[in-house]
């Protein structure tokens, strides 16, 4: 078997389940824009990272799973030059979104109270 070692531009995806908690040795599958079998499969490395070299532009999909059911299903937009412009991450910081969730729960409770009072008031 012959081989070749070279430097190449790849898409790098980093995953962790918390600070200093990289998702290591987790199986992943990379799917290209066209339907079909996985373009690339493997396991994340000791830094919780995986790489793949896209061969066409479009929306690529990466699915990672750990044995306990946690994981990620994310999309990677590859442009015509086979680059990932700007990179991406999964959204705003966690704690502001947790506070937002608490706000929604409080608001829903208020609506429930209002509805209950109206339904009680409507009874003869």
């Amino acid at each position: 078997m012959s081989h070749r070692v070279e430097q190449a531009a790849v898409v790098l995806v980093s995953l962790d389940s918390g600070p200093e908690q990289p998702l290591t040795d987790a199986p992943y599958r990379v799917f290209g824009p066209e339907p079909g079998p996985a373009y690339s499969v493997g396991r994340t490395d000791t830094r919780g990272q995986l790489t793949f070299q896209p061969d066409q532009a479009g929306t690529w999909r990466v699915i990672v799973s750990s044995a306990d059911g946690h994981g990620a299903s994310l999309t990677v937009e590859v442009d015509e030059s086979l680059q990932v412009p700007g990179g991406s991450s999964n959204g705003p910081a966690r704690w502001p979104m947790v506070l937002a969730g608490l706000g929604y729960i409080t608001g829903l409770a208020g609506l429930a109270l209002l509805w209950k009072r109206r339904s009680l008031g409507a009874r003869p």
Binding site: G18, Q21, S66, D68
Partner: peptide, 12 residues
């Protein structure tokens, strides 16, 4: 919403 790190790189 709070992930608790567990040995082995996983969390619960």
């Amino acid at each position: 919403s709070v992930m608790i790190p567990l040995p082995g790189g996983t969390s619960a």
